[in-house]
Structures are given as C-alpha cells and as structure tokens.
C-alpha cells in the first residue's frame, strides 16, 4: 500500500515523513526516528510500556498508526531531560527513590505520571496507584514507583 506524507512533531521537532499506513506509532518512533526510549511490551494496549504524550495527553503508541499523528505533537521519554546530566525532576525522583529496577516499564510510567502530576500536583498515594493502574511493572511491586511519584510531586510543587 502506498506511503502517506505526514508532518509529525516529536519532542518539539517537526519533520515530514512518508509512512506506510500500517506502521504503528510505537514502531515509527523506535525504528524510523531511533527513539528507542519508548518501549514495546504487549502490543495490545495492556502493559503501558509504550505510553507517549499525544497533544499532551498520555496514549498507547502501539494502539495508533503513525499516520494518525500527522499534524499532532508527540512527546516521548527522550523529551523529558534537557541533557544526560540534567534530568527532569520526575526522572530525578525515580533515580533518588529507586523507582526502577530493570527499567523496561519506566518510560511508559514517566509519560503517564507527567500529565497526571500536572493535573494533580498534590496526589494521595491512592490516586497515584490508580493513575499507575494502566502500567505494568513486574520487578518493583510498585512501592518504590509510588514513592518516586510522591517525591516528584513534592519537589515539583516546591519548584513551582
């Protein structure tokens, strides 16, 4: 099937791409743009590892076609830190609170929590756990992830 011309903004950079319609957004980010921070777990919308921001809202990038992102803004985990030694406060909180072990689920969790904390700057632990219900982690038992989210919330509140 013929490629479609698209204009997609990823992490603030807008580029034209010719895309085969069946290419998933997750595969486009990883294979075409080399943004391998977006992880692919289940490919049917259950695990949350591929979560990215679509016009600022978290979505499963494995449940969208890349052509559908034309004219829209995508933010991936690579869009968070300004540089390797200057992590986003959310990333720094995960580092400090040991919010990751193998790290496979981490990008999806960060991209879920970023808009969540923007809308709920002072969440309760229950709210954090509910916000994370669409992201599977098989290492941590979630406790340190929840700690990291709450730490990030406190720091980002102070930062503002």
């Amino acid at each position: 099937m013929s490629d479609h011309t698209t204009l997609i903004t990823v992490n603030g950079k807008t580029e034209a791409h010719a895309i085969e319609p069946r290419l998933l957004l997750s595969d486009f980010l990883r294979h075409e743009l080399g943004l391998t921070g977006t992880h692919v777990g289940c490919e049917h919308g259950v695990c949350g590892a591929c979560t990215v921001l679509f016009d600022g809202q978290p979505v499963r990038s494995c449940l969208m076609f890349a052509v559908q992102a034309s004219g829209h803004e995508i933010t991936t985990v690579e869009g968070l830190a300004q540089s390797m030694d200057n992590l986003h406060p959310l990333q720094q909180a995960f580092w400090d609170a040991h919010g990751l072990q193998c790290g496979f689920c981490t990008p999806g969790i960060l991209m879920t929590l970023l808009p969540f904390l923007a809308e709920n700057p002072q969440p309760t632990e229950t709210e954090v756990r509910e916000a994370l219900s669409g992201n599977l982690c098989r290492c941590t038992g979630y406790q340190h992830i929840v700690d990291a989210a709450l730490l990030a919330a406190r720091r980002m509140e102070i930062g503002n």
Partner: peptide
C-alpha cells in the same frame, strides 16, 4: 472503562 491512556483515545 479501562485506563486514562485508553480513554484519551
């Protein structure tokens, strides 16, 4: 209904 990530789409 599922999760916020699903309901966004």
């Amino acid at each position: 209904i599922a999760h916020p990530q699903i309901r966004n789409r």
